[in-house]
């Protein structure tokens, strides 16, 4: 059963006991989240049926298309800041043209997937947590259970599929907008013409950079869905609980994305 019964613990007597309890709770939470993810993944084939098609489409629309506005702004400024910062330094060596490759590489490898992940975790992930949390509080999830509609299949799987598809696509979008942002700064602030910028931009980036970044985005998508849906299902104590679940979703997603992002980078770029 996905909904947790409220648990009660005797008040802790000392620091060690308290720490131990938190560690155990964390491990247990991770385990439950992982089991939920596995169940959702096992349900992915059901996503092909017409019953879930609409839900997946809806989630794709909400998490993908609806996020384009904020992503555009964030990506544009990320690219512009990157170009400006590296450009100012490279100018000392009269090598400003290298902002093209600097911005492209940083966007493709790290900033593209990470910025997309941050925005999606903060906007879409938190909304997943809030929505599922509210459903738990208002017994909608219980209603689904009683109707023998598996909450994980009905609520988590479409979101998981949607983010697995949309995260890499949004990352491509972020990358493009970020590189364009860099070009704008290059042209207006650093005197690097657009053709020179784009020529340099495409000079050092490789398909490996692009696709490792997209792989990261897929992993981030899975992480965001897992964390947000699990936090949603773990909601207790009404509206306060929903708020807490939302906050925890954003914080945990960021931390996990940073750690996993580092590990993926380490794995592919020794």
């Amino acid at each position: 059963m996905i909904i947790q019964e409220p648990e009660h613990f005797e008040p802790t007597r000392n620091f060690v006991q308290n720490t131990g309890r938190h560690v155990l709770a964390m491990l247990r939470g991770s385990g439950r989240a992982m089991l939920m993810l596995l169940e959702a993944m096992r349900d992915i084939p059901h996503g092909l049926s017409s019953k879930h098609r609409h839900d997946i489409l809806l989630q794709q629309y909400v998490s993908g298309v609806k996020s384009l506005g904020v992503l555009t702004v964030v990506a544009l400024f990320t690219g512009m800041i990157l170009a400006l910062q590296t450009g100012i330094e490279l100018r000392r060596f009269a090598q400003e043209v290298y902002i093209g490759s600097a911005v492209t590489l940083v966007m493709l490898r790290e900033m593209g997937p990470f910025m997309t992940g941050m925005i999606i975790a903060a906007s879409v992930g938190s909304s997943f947590a809030a929505q599922i949390g509210t459903m738990v509080v208002s017994e909608e999830v219980s209603a689904l259970e009683v109707m023998s509609i598996k909450p994980v299949r009905y609520l988590v799987m479409p979101r998981l599929v949607a983010l697995i598809i949309m995260m890499p696509l949004l990352t491509v979008y972020t990358n493009v907008i970020g590189v364009v942002g860099g070009a704008i700064v290059g042209q207006t602030q650093l005197g690097v013409s657009m053709p020179a910028y784009f020529d340099n931009a495409t000079q050092y980036a490789q398909n490996k950079d692009l696709y490792v970044g997209l792989f990261k985005a897929v992993v981030f998508g899975i992480l965001i869905t897992t964390v947000s849906c699990y936090q949603g299902f773990s909601t207790t104590q009404g509206a306060v609980g929903v708020g807490r679940a939302t906050r925890r979703t954003v914080v945990i997603s960021f931390l996990v994305m940073l750690a996993v992002g580092y590990m993926i980078t380490r794995l592919f770029y020794q």
């Binding site: 489409l57 794709q60 629309y61 993908g64 298309v65 384009l68 598809i165 696509l169 949004l170 491509v172 979008y173 990358n175 493009v176 495409t202 980036a205 490789q206 398909n207 950079d209 692009l210």
Partner: peptide
């Protein structure tokens, strides 16, 4: 909308794959 978005991004992805 979703279809158009996916199509455009896949197009861009293909373009960059060729470039890189």
């Amino acid at each position: 909308t979703v279809g158009a978005f996916i199509f455009m991004i896949l197009l861009a992805l293909g373009f960059f794959t060729i470039i890189f």
